[in-house]
Design a protein around this nucleic acid. Structure first.
Lengths: 146, 146
DNA sequence: GACATATAGTTGTTTGTGCAACTATCCAAA
DNA sequence: TTTGGATAGTTGCACAAACAACTATATGTC
């Protein structure tokens, strides 16, 4: 099946993800202003650890849609910031389980508040049902390609 | 105005732009397979030059939503690949005008074909009117934040 | 004309990404 | 029990992004 209605017009924006870039930049600025000393990418790892602590780097790869070297380095930097620690698994010594530190737990509430605030600014003036459709389309795109 | 219906749920995907990441990776793979020796970021600069040749680096910043140092380095690399050349403007000697080479002109048709193909794969199964809504929402998000 | 200010572009530094090649460990089949 | 393949993670390299500090040129005002 072909979507030929989707022609040259806005091809560019779809591919380059200008909207998500804009969201990420705005959120990063809020983090900087609030002196939360983390990057958006680091935060995206913490986000999944807040949902479930002590998962492996491989699970973080799947959750964040990043490859293994990217996660290795993000965890490196999060460890330098003393926000997580690697604990090698007893059950399978190839694996590192990644645990949040107390410091990282303290970040959760404030950073999630700023994320929500950013999304509210981003979606200002967009009716809820259109947001819903947009989310669904983006999910299908992701499923089609992942 | 607040969009409180937009809660924790899919906050993550919106911010991280998993869909556009997936599209960009797929397109990059097609470029590599076809031995088009360019990155998606370089291609995004060429894309605007194909629309209008001989524009300044500042205009490329605006068009591609990148800062000046990013464009400086992308143009550096495109120049190394002999796909563009910098010509300093007679009218304003601060400016470089960026011109496509013959080689870059040859890339246009094939790369645009691969981009369209990628979008068709991405949007497979999504009805046209939903694509339209999604594009509109992303445009509003961009306008709200840029 | 001289000077202050704005604009165009470059460079250095830190961080992140994608790919390939590598090590270490696990597991299953001979 | 050995061995061969799969899986988890790391390292090296090239490319890109964000920010700050910098140079060079243009322009408006006195």
């Amino acid at each position: 099946m072909s979507n030929n209605q989707f022609r040259k017009g806005e091809l560019y924006s779809f591919i380059t993800g200008k909207a998500s870039t804009a969201i990420a930049r705005r959120l990063q600025k809020k983090f900087n202003t609030a002196e939360l000393n983390v990057t958006i990418e680091q935060w995206s790892v913490l986000y999944h650890l807040w949902k479930q602590d002590g998962i492996s780097q491989q699970e973080l790869c799947n959750a964040t849609f990043r490859d293994k070297p990217s996660i290795t380095r993000l965890v490196d930097n999060l460890e330098k910031l003393q926000l997580v620690k690697r604990v090698s698994s007893d059950a399978d010594r190839r694996m590192n389980l990644i645990f949040l530190t107390r410091q990282a737990q303290k970040l959760q509430e404030q950073s999630m508040g700023l994320a929500e605030e950013t999304l509210n600014e981003a979606l200002e003036g967009v009716p809820p049902e259109r947001i819903e459709i947009c989310k669904e389309v983006l999910q299908i795109v992701y499923d089609n390609l992942k």
